[in-house]
């Protein structure tokens, strides 16, 4: 538990821009996917039934909307927040060239991948066990979130402030 707390709360240091750019691109892919589904929802277009699966059953199920808000729209906002977190970091490092990069905002936005991943597990479970149909776009979003969580774990493990640095910082 203490290790987990250390993993999640410790500031990130010496973050490579390449890893942040990968996260940014992956988050934008997720944003495009979720935005497409949101647009279809608001256009009121009933998805046709395809020979390749039951996307229409998933997208017209009661689970596709939470308190009147389409789940895909929540997903789009979630991916956008992660992308903005990455951009704020890159901007502080390469454009403003701040001595202390804005890694804290990036860290906070990356923490969103944990509830994001849990939500993806929940919705994939609904497709498998309750709706008994699969939506390619929803499964694609689940894959994107899994990739984002994996990159977050790598980042948090590899680039968090060490115990010695943390002690020195506190002193």
């Amino acid at each position: 538990m203490k290790n987990l707390k250390r993993l999640l709360t410790r500031p990130l240091v010496a973050l490579p821009s390449s890893l942040v750019i990968i996260i940014l691109v992956v988050a934008l892919v997720g944003f495009a996917d979720a935005t497409y589904l949101s647009a279809e929802h608001f256009r009121g277009v009933i998805p046709p039934c395809s020979v390749t699966g039951g996307c229409e059953k998933v997208l017209t199920s009661d689970f596709s909307v939470v308190f009147g808000i389409p789940v895909s729209l929540l997903g789009a906002v979630y991916y956008l927040l992660i992308a903005i977190g990455g951009l704020i970091f890159l901007e502080s490092k390469h454009i403003s060239k701040l001595e202390k990069h804005n890694s804290e905002i990036l860290r906070l936005s990356l923490l969103l991948t944990i509830p994001g991943f849990l939500a993806s597990v929940w919705f994939t479970g609904l497709q498998v066990f309750v709706i008994h149909s699969y939506c390619t776009y929803c499964l694609g979003s689940a894959c994107v979130t899994t990739i984002l969580l994996s990159l977050t774990v790598v980042m948090f493990r590899k680039y968090r402030r060490t115990d010695e640095e943390d002690l020195r910082f506190k002193i």
Binding site: F31, A32, Y36, E40, V45, A83, E91, I95
Partner: peptide
């Protein structure tokens, strides 16, 4: 100017994604 360009670039990319989706639909 650099910062404005950077953030405008991002807004343009988001706009292009949404525009591309609308055209595709």
């Amino acid at each position: 100017t650099k910062r404005i360009t950077f953030w405008l670039g991002f807004v343009v990319i988001i706009g292009l994604i949404i525009w591309g989706l609308v055209v595709a639909m």
